[in-house]
């Protein structure tokens, strides 16, 4: 079976020959692996099963002094967080879109490398990525505290903002569907360490109907829907499945019972993630990492699971801990013979 076929099996709730994986690393963690493997391109060393396509979090203009501007006009300070950065200022200082224009969703740069990437990694499962896909895009434009209060102060504006973001995403999805992709991944963060940031009442009022529209656009093209939300959001799984979610990431073990959920949802919702990035990877021993990895591989052996650390591995993780899980996933008997 190709890697692509293995992921198809996982998403369809069938038993795969082994547990597939797709692991991400931040810049600092990646540099440790690049030095270890002696290569700059880690694709061959990692053998990830998901091929990421599209622009994910978009394109940036360098502004100097560790600052970049994204296509939405948001300035990011990358002096500390070097991968994504932190929002500086507030693009939508007032609760209105009247003087704001969204960027071009069909910017050719978003789609330019799709044919080449698919040709180069033809055997992998192709996922078109849209990062900051809704709530996060809204708060990066409006400011998180402003947006939280706008839910009550300016609900019509929040509906308009979220729907305009969705229109932008759906235009991208429709263009991406012209390529031979397998899924669309919507990145967003609704959760916190305990429960939803905005609570279920506001999530169902503002977020849910817009997700429903975006997921429907993907299913209209007969593709799978992947979604990411950090935090304790498992209360939403049944309703997310109801509107077409097929695979959930990051499956954080600090905030949800990964083994129980994998069993509960097997055949209905696949999970991607699961390895603790808040505790085991930065603070555990190699043996701790091996033990947790083996537990996860056992959890996923019947299907419905794609292994990964529950976040891009941060720079505070020792190389030995990264190699511990990489070696184990690649040593699965079914992988070598598949």
């Amino acid at each position: 079976m190709t890697k692509r076929e293995v992921i198809y099996a996982v998403l369809e709730g069938k038993k795969p020959p082994y547990v597939p994986w797709s692991c991400g690393f931040t810049k600092e963690a990646r540099e440790k692996l690049q030095a270890r493997y002696g290569v700059t391109d880690l694709e061959d060393a990692l053998q990830n099963h998901l091929l990421k396509l599209g622009s994910d979090i978009g394109f940036f203009t360098e502004l100097g002094e560790d600052r970049v501007r994204d296509v939405f006009g948001v300035v990011w300070d990358r002096s500390i967080d070097k991968d994504i950065g932190n929002v500086e200022g507030c693009v939508l200082s007032e609760p209105t879109l009247h003087s704001y224009s969204f960027p071009d969703p069909l910017d050719p740069r978003i789609f330019a490398d799709i044919p080449g990437r698919i040709a180069g990694f033809w055997d992998r499962f192709r996922v078109f990525q849209i990062g900051f896909s809704l709530y996060e895009r809204a708060w990066t434009l409006r400011g998180m505290q402003n947006l939280m209060m706008d839910f009550y102060d300016h609900p019509a504006f929040v509906h308009e903002l979220l729907n305009t973001i969705a229109d932008y995403n759906i235009a991208q999805v429709n263009e991406a569907l012209k390529y031979d992709i397998d899924a669309v991944y919507f990145g967003d963060d609704w959760g916190q360490q305990r429960g939803l940031q905005m609570g279920p009442k506001l999530w169902y009022e503002f977020i849910y109907p817009v997700l429903k529209r975006m997921y429907a656009a993907v299913h209209a093209g007969d593709k799978y829907v992947f979604a990411h939300s950090c935090g304790d959001v498992d209360e939403l799984f049944d309703d997310l499945i109801g509107i077409g979610l097929n695979c959930f990431n990051p499956f954080q073990p600090e905030v949800m019972d990964v083994a129980a959920l994998a069993q509960q949802y097997c055949g209905r919702l696949a999970f991607h993630g699961g390895l603790s990035t808040q505790r085991t990877l930065p603070y555990g021993t190699v043996e701790n990492v091996r033990a947790e990895t083996l537990r996860l591989l056992e959890t996923g052996q019947e299907g419905g699971y794609i292994f990964a650390p529950a976040h891009d591995v941060e720079g505070d993780v020792q190389l030995e801990n990264m190699l511990a899980f990489i070696d184990l996933i690649q040593a699965q008997p079914g992988y070598r013979t598949s």
Binding site: M149, Y152, G195, Q197, G199
Partner: peptide
Amino acid sequence: CGESFVPEMLIAAR
């Protein structure tokens, strides 16, 4: 106890 969330806390604090 999960009866209110961050937005409610923010507007109350304001």
